[in-house]
Design a protein around this nucleic acid. Structure first.
Lengths: 96, 96
DNA sequence: ACTATATTTCTAATATTATGGAAATATAAT
DNA sequence: ATTATATTTCCATAATATTAGAAATATAGT
């Protein structure tokens, strides 16, 4: 992974609310979680939540798919795995 | 690792210049790298570099030790390893 | 004491991000 | 058509981060 992309993804995960959102999605499994469920679980106002989800989507860590009125957020495991691999390969030489 | 601490560390790594600094330090090994060497290698103005290093230090990813006029920056491998472990444990359930 | 080197702190300007209410959009149900 | 539900977009405000020149500090050498 390019360092610029890695930095962007790290930055998006580097916000407490977004990290909680992402963790909630991961725990929810690959079928995805409705925005409304995240909102209820984390207690974040809709517009704020939407903003954070948009940012996670913008760096490819989350995808969205609509089913009727409900928008499901799906965590992109592969992208996170790539990010972890980047950290290990680029930043753990010699020690980790 | 607490999620708030993880988020802070991710945020600090989530800046292209800081990620480059950290990577450079990791590659330099555990004896540490002088600030001036980082400056020469990355071409960042001193005050800007100092600011970014301070931030990495503030979240425990880097430590500094002085030897005469030279300040060595030492990457904290253990902290990064903990961060990677957090990502794997908290955010890779089910898939990664 | 003086000069040179290494690095930080101060300062101020600019840019980006975060927050949440209100209005808008999209879909579904009656 | 109307109403209800789900979510976003718009907007303004406040907060935080980035940048780098200039001045300050710390240490070493002469």
């Amino acid at each position: 992974m390019e360092i610029e992309i890695a930095a962007k993804r790290l930055a998006e995960l580097g916000h407490s609310t977004r990290l909680k959102i992402f963790r909630y999605l991961v725990r929810g499994g690959k079928q995805g979680v409705p925005v409304g469920e995240i909102q209820a679980a984390l207690g974040v106002p809709g517009s704020t939540l939407s903003h954070h989800i948009t940012r996670l989507v913008s760096v490819g860590l989350v995808m969205q798919k609509r089913d009727g009125r409900t928008l499901y957020c799906v965590p992109q495991y592969k992208e996170l795995d790539g990010l972890i691999a980047f950290l290990k390969e680029e930043c753990c030489i010699n020690e980790c």
